[in-house]
């Protein structure tokens, strides 16, 4: 079986980056709501609190996943030679572009975590 990075691009890869973005967005919103309900924001260590730490870890986890996906897409594109059809090459480039957009969107959303009050 070929490694993921060596297979020709499928249409699913076009959406994979933003599916990770959607997961990040949903989990951040859900964790914030549940954390506020359960009072995680009141468990503090200096300027840090448990809720913010969990949110940061969720965000960082998704960013790591996206970085991995970016690497896979990049590798697939680099290794896609003439043997792949024009459609596969097109999907490879589009998937890379969509993944880059998902990275930027996820990063942009996460910027608020250290800056805003949590449950206020």
């Amino acid at each position: 079986m070929k490694a993921l990075s060596q297979r020709p691009a499928g249409p699913v890869f076009l959406a994979l980056g933003f599916l990770i973005w959607a997961s990040a967005f949903s989990m951040l919103y859900a964790a914030l709501s549940i954390g506020c309900e359960l009072g995680w924001n009141s468990i503090t260590w200096g300027i840090f609190d448990l809720l913010r730490l969990i949110l940061f870890m969720l965000w960082a986890g998704h960013m790591t996943l996206l970085a991995w996906l970016y690497r896979v897409c990049r590798k697939r594109l680099d290794t896609s030679g003439e043997e792949n059809s024009s459609a596969a090459r097109f999907l490879g480039r589009a998937s890379l572009g969509a993944t880059m957009a998902a990275v930027a969107s996820t990063f942009w959303i996460g910027l608020a975590i250290p800056l805003s009050s949590t449950c206020g």
């Binding site: 967005f25 951040l28 914030l32 942009w108 910027l111 805003s116 009050s117």
Partner: peptide, 19 residues
């Protein structure tokens, strides 16, 4: 809604202008 949640949705609302 908590400020941080507002920030998440505000960020997404501005980001959608890019595509």
């Amino acid at each position: 809604i908590p400020h941080l949640a507002l920030a998440f949705f505000s960020a997404a609302s501005t980001a959608v202008a890019v595509p």
